[in-house]
């Protein structure tokens, strides 16, 4: 029964990881591509890690929880990298299917230092 649960988690996780990469390859502009890897891939790897934790807990006859650490780390860092990437893309003014709001275009220069390096 537990083995079935682990198998299910593994396959679900792999399917989500695959869908995330499929979104990365398939969608049309950068900002929509960003959605696939940040959500689907993160949850996919999360499922795999939980399956791994269960598997090793059964094998070693004691709780093996260090996979939780990687899961937590991924769930905390994935949105941060996504935010940084979106910010970089807005800064470079990548073209987008959605209309960019005016306020962001007005605030394009981030710091005085940046202006100096570009001149």
């Amino acid at each position: 029964m537990l083995e079935f649960l682990i198998s299910l988690l593994i396959v679900t996780g792999a399917v989500f990881a695959f869908i995330g990469s499929l979104g990365l390859a398939r969608l049309k502009d950068f900002y929509t591509r960003l959605h696939g890897p940040t959500k689907a891939t993160t949850l996919g790897v999360g499922c795999l890690l939980i399956a791994s934790a269960l598997h090793f807990s059964i094998i070693e006859q004691s709780a093996s929880l260090h996979e939780v650490l990687v899961t937590l780390f991924l769930f905390m860092t994935a949105p941060v990298s996504a935010h940084m990437l979106a910010k970089a893309a807005l800064h470079l003014g990548l073209k987008s299917l959605a209309k960019l709001p005016d306020a962001t275009m007005a605030n394009r220069s981030m710091s005085p230092r940046h202006k100096q390096t570009r001149q």
Partner: peptide, 15 residues
Amino acid sequence: LANVISLTPGTVSSR
């Protein structure tokens, strides 16, 4: 809040 938004339905916080 920005992290939560990035992980929930169809939205990514950008700036």
